[in-house]
Design a protein around this nucleic acid. Structure first.
Length: 161
DNA sequence: GCCAACGTTGGC
DNA sequence: GCCAACGTTGGC
């Protein structure tokens, strides 16, 4: 079962927002990057586990785990002129943009910060040494994570600090 | 707020 | 198809 990491700016949508949703579920709308779109449309499946990441904030961190509860379907926000995510070029008959639904699994008691991830990745032979999130210039908002990386991050969230 | 890295757009 | 200009991301 593949694993993913999804970024969000907590000022826009945080893991606490997800925790407050009916069924703790939301659609992951507004991804407007073709590489991420391809993952959403073609690769991400129901049951896949997701690291929920807060970016562009005071302490960037993985803040919890979510699960994919609906596989790729058209992002209808692209057809809504009122929406911030409106895209005049996306045709409802042949949609450009896709989204999935995610459901909260759990919020980490202690977020695993980007700083901690980098420190871990710097250790010799670290499981995280090649993690996409940590690569220079990497800014894909939906990205693959290996099973080992996923397990490691979850373990770090449980470790005493 | 700065700025490096990256993606997209559009003139040619 | 090239590439400069522009916009966005996101850490710091």
């Amino acid at each position: 079962m593949p694993h993913w990491l999804m970024k969000t700016e907590p000022t826009t949508y945080s893991i606490q927002d997800l925790a407050g949703e009916p069924n703790q579920t939301t659609c992951w709308e507004g991804v407007r990057n073709y590489q991420a779109r391809n993952l959403l449309r073609d690769d991400i499946q129901v049951g896949d586990q997701v690291l929920f990441y807060h970016s562009a904030c005071k302490e960037p961190a993985v803040t919890g785990v979510a699960k994919v509860s609906r596989a790729g379907y058209p992002d209808h926000h692209a057809f809504d002129k009122q929406s911030h995510y409106y895209d005049a070029k996306s045709n409802p008959d042949d949609p450009t943009w896709f989204m999935v639904d995610v459901t909260l699994d759990h919020v980490f008691a202690a977020p695993v910060t980007l700083k901690q991830l980098r420190a871990e990745a710097a250790l010799a032979g670290s499981v995280l040494s090649d993690m996409m999130l940590l690569r220079k210039g990497s800014r894909l908002s939906v990205q693959p994570v290996t099973a080992k990386e996923f397990k490691k991050v979850v373990a770090m969230s449980k470790a005493k600090r």
